[in-house]
Design a protein around this nucleic acid. Sequence first.
RNA 1: GCUUGCGUGGCGCAAUGGUAGCGCAACUGACUUGUAAUCAGUAGGUUGUCAGUUCAACUCUGACCGCAAGCUCCA
Length: 584
Amino acid sequence: MFKIKLEGGRTMEVEEKTFWHTTSHILAQAVKRLYPEIKLAIGPSIDNGFYYDFDTDKPFTPEMLEALEAEMKKIVKEDLKLERFVLPRKEALELMKDEPYKQELINDLPEDAELSFYKQGEFTDLCAGPHIPSTGSVKAIKLLTSSGAYWRGNEKNKMLQRIYGISFPKASQLEEYLNMLEEAKKRDHRKLGKDLDLFFFDETAPGMAYWMPKGFTMMNVLIDFWRKEHKKRGYQEFSGPQLNSSELWKISGHWDHYKEDMFVLTDVDGNEQALKPMNCPNSIKIYQTKLRSYKDLPLRFNDIDVIHRNEKSGQLNGLFRVRMFRQDDSHNYITEEQIGTEIKDIVEIASYLYGIFGLEYQLTLSTRPEDYMGEIETWNKAEADLKKVLDEIAGEGNYRINEGDGAFYGPKIDIKMKDCLGREWQMGTVQLDFQLPQRFNLYYIDKEGEKKTPIMVHRAIFGSFDRFIGIITEHFAGAFPTWLAPVQTKILPISDNHLEYAKKVQEKLEEQGIRTELDERSEKIGYKIREAQLQKVPYMLILGDKEVEAGAVGVRARKEGDIGQMSLEDFVAKIKNEVENFVK
RNA sequence: GCUUGCGUGGCGCAAUGGUAGCGCAACUGACUUGUAAUCAGUAGGUUGUCAGUUCAACUCUGACCGCAAGCUCCA
């Protein structure tokens, strides 16, 4: 809620979105004043601020945004009252006769809809409201960026020009917000990945990360952990080919529905093949190697093979959207009766794994789309099962439902997380599939000795190891917990005289499986500490005369600072304890 | 893919038409150090690529590549 001042010194509380919505009208008014020929589309509030879409031949340059911001400030100074009024359709269309997009909106509204307008000074906009009483309350405004956006979000429509902005009742709040954005950028995994030597991208391989030794160490720690947890739960890991002939992709349907996103190769004989964008068909090949009984189900084949997707250039985004990645994938084959228990099992694994990282996530159920395939009864049962699981685990109302957003082959539960800028990314996913088993003629023998088609569950918990490392890098701001940190202990001898002792200490730690690094440079201890701090190493061992004499180590923790001298054994026990308490 | 913006040594930045400069990092030397930056020196760039304009291009124009934000997409 924002507190705004009214005439006569009274204050009132308004919702942020109301405040921002009014600011979007101020923006539209400024645009109309400076560029009367530009047509208005729509201008709502969003989670952080507002935008307004305009139809214009000349896109907004940074200079134009500056001019608009100045004009908006004038409108604020003029302290224009916002007045609401309602018009019958005919008069509404007449009033908006120069605004084709507004006319389209009016025409698309139902017959009996109330057509309300808001007027501030010379400017009037079709709008359902609500608004704050007067433009004078918008004391701080910042236009952030402009970009293209399709009319009504449809790629086939005309691209309009969108201006994003933010506003506050007080200048200090704007300053605070901009500072927060700056701070958030420091957590950006693309920056930290470089600073901490985790990974990088090269122009010659867009969307495909180079994993540096430190980043790859982390990935391996994650993979080991993930393997252990899945093996415990009856998953069997396999690995399959990277390249399959187009024949396979035709059966799976990818050739028709996903070819644009696949890397297709033609061999010397002219045969077409594609790098796998998904693991499902390979998993199916594993299923098909044996005759399966109902007693075998659920069968859970997991794999972490690298997959390739030819994402369009504009979609790439650090580790969050890449062209080559490792999904923590599994395909589980179940009977219809097993839907509920199997989904519950998977969602529980997810909540257990995420809990270890302290990650917050959002569950979304996506239901039957219009172009669904299969029996409606199967869909209804499956959706009911999914809902039941979500009600049990998340609690009723604690998850979103995206009606009609499921895949054509089955409903799904998606798990989303936010990055440092508040953007949502899909991490885990649990998708029921009634189609693929049929396309590949999969079956098992049921109790009655009859062939039955299993249901396939596509599921990933982390989503991909790559994206997940991006998310946790931002979540921890690079200060990874000890069990994950690529370097757990940095050994810092005070002078060259202590180097020999330092090497012995390192050897002993490595023997215990503790990941270490030794700073051998002839630098002052303060300098070495500073660097280890910037690298966010959990523990530093300071080794000088005192430690050599006592046969001990001086321990400095990343967060607490100097925590005093202890024996090497005690330090090993401390670290091991920490690691084991994170991963049970 | 679309819109806008950006691309200068490993990283962060400067130079707006007159043949590139700073800080950090790196390397070398001295110092041998007690909890977030010791001093000095050295080296490193045909300014994303390719064309074009100009006596002259980091700077202007075009194409392409890459990156960022947003849109669309995401089996």
